[in-house]
Amino acid sequence: MIPLNYPFTEEQIRALQVGDEVGITGVVFTGRDAVHKYLHEGGSLPTGVQLRGGIIYHCGPVVLMDAAGQWQVTAAGPTTSIREEPYQAQIIRDFGIRGVIGKGGMGDKTSAACREYGCVYLHAIGGAAQVLAECVRKVRGVYMLEEFGSPEAIWELEVENFPAVVTMDSHGKSLHREVFAASQSALAERIASKAGARHP
């Protein structure tokens, strides 16, 4: 596992290749549907949210306040990233993001932005909310909680050794594109052979 420590430099990010397994340590900010739409429409980042050189995490965690008044993350896996495809490239460009954590991968626009601006897509394991919550050492803050509600708010999380796989790198390569193409042609063969068997 390759350690990926905050702050994330362009050099560090450019060295990563599709298939690399990384352990992320440092600060990440969650942001999903509402945040992406808001930024896309020209909304400004709340004071305290530092995306430049940072990582945005497509996640809506379960967070409870404990008896001491501290936020505790009790579940924190990734959400499906493709919904942010219309907005992600612009946000990578405008806010200087070095990494996007999510699941399911993203499309060609995001892949091009990763290549141009030096960013990677980091695939976390979907549904692994407990393993990933254990990597959250501390909730440093929350922004836009009132406006967007808990799952859609921006949570500032300190993570340690958060496991993810590079599935889109900064050299234009995408594992998702490759697997889709391969599985599509495998399916075409199996559809054709079955139809052939039925009508020889």
Partner: peptide, 26 residues
């Protein structure tokens, strides 16, 4: 990486049960 993913899934299932917390945040 398919095997790694499934190993994390296995660990997650065990952890969720032990801590009585959601398997998935959604």
């Amino acid at each position: 990486i398919a095997e790694s993913a499934l190993k994390i899934i296995e660990r997650n299932i065990e952890l969720a049960k032990r801590k009585s917390q959601p398997i998935c945040q959604d």
